[in-house]
């Protein structure tokens, strides 16, 4: 039905050659669309269609894209909240996809996810000590007084007063509630924290606080982050490497430092054109590259390059052939026929 993603998606070498903390290969999630009296599957929504990446120890990998590009589905598959259709998720050298619930339990304490809306991910009827301490109880790490002690530590770690652990979520502001969400994610001492739009609903002044907190925690605890957001500026600031997703696939990979200065995919151009950019005279401008049209439905992705119907630079090849991940100079990959040619990159099998 679709060409095997193996040959076309970026494969990223592990920095330093060590086994990465997280290695995702050819991850696919298709949701069936059923029809008729017997509910036959007539088509599928290709939410994620062959995505590969790695996250090294202590590294922050940014996943950026618009709604419907599949970035949140990737987050849920990595944390095993959603079962992948196919593909591999290796965490610290162990394949997670085949594991049974009991075997997975051991790993669940080693990765955690922080969601966008801090209030809806905290039970409004539970005191903070219960919400934050819940993973401690679930993993039989601490109960009673030990749990309270650990929750107090966590509260201090995220910059909140330990005196407030007996309060309820509604007694905190949005920024504070998100800090509580982070505290809970850290309760079991994880290696990897997946942030799914974790700062997107916060006001900019609070967003800056939480971004600083995430950086500080990474320094102090040696955390790895999979940081998922739609704001390229925020992703660039926090990440070491950035993966740009469009319609279920990765279109560009590069180090955070270079990707905004020299984007190697027209879709990245469009994303950059939409974010605040300071001008030489001070203040902000946006460069306003307007991508045409809208994101097509993931149940009917266009043939060839999935971005071609909206791409100002598309030519004949883009309409028929799905671009492979062209390797450019440095650690960069681009799934664009044109840009790869311009950069005289070598094609990566």
């Amino acid at each position: 039905m679709n060409t095997p993603a193996t040959t076309t998606q970026p494969r990223v070498p592990v920095p330093g050659g060590r086994e990465p903390l997280l290695a995702v290969t050819d991850l696919v999630k298709h949701y069936p669309i059923t029809k008729g009296l017997l509910r036959r599957t007539v088509a599928s929504v290709r939410a994620v269609d062959g995505v590969s990446f790695t996250v090294g120890r202590g590294e922050t990998v940014g996943l950026v894209g618009e709604s419907g590009c599949g970035k949140s589905t990737v987050a849920k598959m990595v944390t095993r909240l959603v079962q992948p259709t196919s593909g591999s998720v290796r965490f610290a050298g162990t394949e997670l996809t085949g594991l049974r619930a009991r075997e997975l339990r051991e790993f669940r304490r080693r990765f955690h996810i922080v969601f966008q809306d801090p209030y809806s991910s905290l039970d409004p009827r539970l005191r903070i000590v219960e919400s934050v301490g819940e993973p401690l109880v679930a993993h039989r790490i601490a109960t009673g007084a030990a749990k309270r002690r650990r929750v107090c530590e966590l509260m201090e770690l995220v910059g909140l007063s330990p005196a407030h652990i007996d309060r309820y979520p509604h007694q905190f502001s949005g920024g504070q509630a998100q800090r509580i969400g982070i505290a809970r994610a850290l309760a079991t001492g994880p290696d990897l924290v997946v942030c799914d739009e974790a700062v997107s609903s916060l006001d900019v002044s609070i967003q800056a606080q939480v971004l600083n907190l995430l950086k500080k925690l990474q320094r102090e605890l040696g955390l790895s982050y999979l940081f998922i957001a739609h704001d390229l500026n925020v992703v660039r600031y926090l990440s070491d490497r950035v993966f740009v997703m469009y319609l279920g696939r990765i279109v560009e990979v590069g180090p955070a430092a270079g990707i905004m200065q020299r984007p190697a995919h027209p879709y990245t151009d469009a994303l950059i054109g939409s974010v605040a950019t300071p001008t030489s005279s001070g203040g902000f401008r946006r460069s306003r590259v307007v991508a045409r049209g809208e994101v097509p439905s993931p149940s009917r992705p266009p043939p060839g390059c999935r971005f071609h119907p909206r791409c100002p630079e598309a030519f004949d090849l883009c309409r028929v052939q799905q671009p492979p991940a062209y390797r450019l100079t440095g650690d960069r990959l681009s799934a664009c026929h044109l840009r790869a040619g311009e950069a005289e990159g070598v094609r990566d099998g």
């Binding site: 971004l211 925020v234 430092a257 950059i272 950019t277």
Partner: peptide, 22 residues
């Protein structure tokens, strides 16, 4: 408020200027 907003040229190694409190 302007300083809080990360831009393409924000120093990635430095902390963002945040407004304390809420």
């Amino acid at each position: 408020l302007f300083q809080c907003i990360p831009t393409p040229v924000t120093d990635r190694s430095a902390a963002l200027t945040a407004i304390p409190g809420a």
